[in-house]
Design a binder for these strands. Structure first.
Length: 522
RNA sequence: GGGCCGCUAGCUCAAUUGGCAGAGCAGCUGACUCUUAAUCAGCUGGUUGAAGGUUCGAGUCCUUCGCGGCUCACCA
């Protein structure tokens, strides 16, 4: 048998259609109404219709067959399109005996079909199409997942997202919200005069974040390239070049662990504004998130764990130092050396390895004591300079930089600062990074001489923000895992011999000399 | 990478202390003129993730491997 049983049965039905002169994969479809347009049409028409309650005019709809209830002379089916679904009422006397028999025997759940007929309301009250003509648009060989439970195995859902999507309206909704969120962010920035730009994904030198890159190779140039870990340094070059407001929505890549909050490729929004500083950018962020939430979700409120969290501006602002001090009792400013801070952190109950560097201990205090409680939107501001090699120092406190991170739902959704535009300070910070790098810190940034050169031409005072789009979408859709807001999350390859899809497809025997499309078997 | 848990029919799930691998959905055959998780009768469908081992006998116990989830470490 060329196909497993279930697929072979459907393939045989396709062949029967061909034998009847019907192409099971026609090139064109016709539709006069989407499902929601049909429902609206009937709602508007119903009061004017007589006793019969039937639309005298025929309409044509298309979609996938998602329900099929055969009662002999009558078949009820549901056709789902991108806008909803519509019930079909398929009667023998309306369709003719042969067409009716063909519909009953040769159409299956999952097939795409086109139906023409008249709208009416059934006794059970559902607006339904009384079908006078039906046509196959695409025969499905695989049966759809179980109609009530859908796909529950998360691995299968991620590997075969198409099956997940066709089985689950909830999953489809998540990615619709994602798309609308990205488009609302664009609208917000476009409306404020930002220019959307595209900077290199393949970079000869990576930078702009503390992370390990993916490395690749260009054959013709015989040169190593890195997949970008951030857009920051390129976008600031553009500000130095004279654009006052730029943004990019980019896939960034970090060669690090994968977990609920981390994907090796993820989507980041970065935007930079000349003559702004980090306080301006805080206003932009809180306004943007609230406005986008209103546009996408209907209110400035995210559905956090079923509870909901208000994201209306203004968001409270607290310095990192105060937040840590209040939550843990540790004032890191009083412990400028590693040993002292380590002892204080441990005394406060933090779990910190003995060899943790000073800046990382501060980060641990933030993570362990502060972050989990930041459910309502909050800006933490003013970070120690050691944590932020691209941010500008505070004028009144050179040990801290003008940086903030927006927190929401117990996690950070971004990172922002008044950008460092002093070329020599930037060079010094790069050199510090270089020293960390030589000391074995693989995440430390390499020196980007060309970026320093750009700053030497002069970059205006600038505020910049990076926002994690995946995390924002997780909050907007109340999903706990980044994999549930990424359509095709990165997964380890199955060995071919263990992959059921490879087994299915490699087991298919095709005719030696396949007939031209639509011609075989006819 | 470490620890814990999981993998049974196309899909969703069962299977007592180790004792004949089952059900629902889907599918096939048939019945049925307003159903909507339609219903009714009958039927098909399995290398229990893979390979070894223990045993009279393994879905179940042991070992190794594969993939996934959670978690810790690293990070946004």
């Amino acid at each position: 048998m060329p196909l497993p049983e279930l697929q072979a049965i459907r393939q045989a039905k396709a062949d029967q259609l061909r034998a009847m002169g019907i192409d099971p994969y026609p090139s064109r479809a016709r539709r006069s109404h989407t499902s929601d347009e049909a429902l609206k049409r009937y709602a508007a028409l119903e009061p004017t219709l007589g006793q019969a309650g039937e639309d005298p005019e025929a309409i044509t709809v298309v979609g996938r067959i998602v329900g099929f209830r055969d009662q002999g002379k009558t078949v009820f089916a549901h056709l789902r399109d991108g806008h909803g679904q519509l019930q079909l009422f398929v009667r023998r006397e309306a369709l003719g005996e042969d067409a009716h028999a063909a519909f009953r025997k040769l159409y299956d759940l999952g097939d795409f079909a086109q139906a023409t007929g008249h709208l009416f309301r059934t006794r059970a009250g559902e607006v339904t199409l009384r079908v006078v003509e039906v046509r196959m648009l695409a025969k499905a060989l695989n049966a759809p997942p179980e109609k009530w439970h859908g796909l529950t195995d998360v691995e299968t859902r991620y590997r075969r997202r198409y099956a997940d999507l066709l089985a689950s309206a909830d999953v489809r909704r998540v990615f619709e919200i994602r798309a609308r969120t990205v488009s609302a962010l664009r609208r917000f920035l476009d409306g404020r005069g930002y220019l959307e730009v595209e900077t290199p994904v393949l970079q000869p030198l990576y930078g702009g974040a503390a992370a390990r890159p993916f490395t690749t190779h260009h054959n013709a140039l015989d040169q190593t390239f890195y997949l970008r870990i951030a857009d920051e340094l390129y976008l600031k070059r553009l500000v130095a070049g004279g654009y006052e407001r730029v943004y990019e929505i980019s896939k960034d890549f970090r060669n690090e662990g994968i977990d609920r909050n981390h994907s090796p490729e993820f989507t980041m929004l970065e935007f930079y504004e000349a003559y702004a500083d980090y306080t301006t950018m805080m206003e932009s962020v809180e306004t943007m998130v609230a406005q986008v939430a209103t546009e996408v979700l209907g209110a400035p409120r995210i559905p956090f764990r079923g509870e909901g969290v208000d994201v209306s501006p203004p968001w409270p602002r607290r310095t990192l130092r105060d937040a840590i001090r209040e939550a843990s009792g540790v004032d890191y400013v009083e412990h400028p050396d590693q040993a002292g801070l380590l002892a204080a952190a441990r005394a406060a109950g933090a779990d910190v390895p003995a060899d943790t560097v000073w800046a990382r201990i501060v980060d641990e205090l933030l993570k362990q004591f502060v972050r989990p409680n930041l459910i309502a939107p909050t800006f933490l501001t003013d970070y120690p300079v050691a944590l932020s090699p691209l941010a500008k120092r505070k004028a009144d406190d050179p040990t801290h930089v003008e940086r903030f991170q927006p927190f929401l739902g117990g996690g950070e959704i971004g990172n922002a600062f008044t950008e460092l535009n002093d070329p020599l300070d930037q060079l010094a910070r790069f050199r510090d990074q270089q020293r960390d790098r030589e000391a074995g810190d693989e995440d430390a940034m390499p020196i980007d001489a060309d970026f320093v050169n750009a700053l030497m031409y002069g970059m205006p005072p600038t505020g910049g923000v990076g926002l994690g789009i995946d995390r924002l979408v997780m909050l907007f859709t109340d999903q706990d895992s980044i994999r549930d807001v990424v359509l095709f999350p990165a997964l380890r390859n199955l060995p071919p011999e263990a992959d059921p899809v490879v087994a299915l497809v490699s087991g298919i025997d095709l005719p030696d000399d396949p007939a031209p499309p639509g011609g075989d078997g006819a």
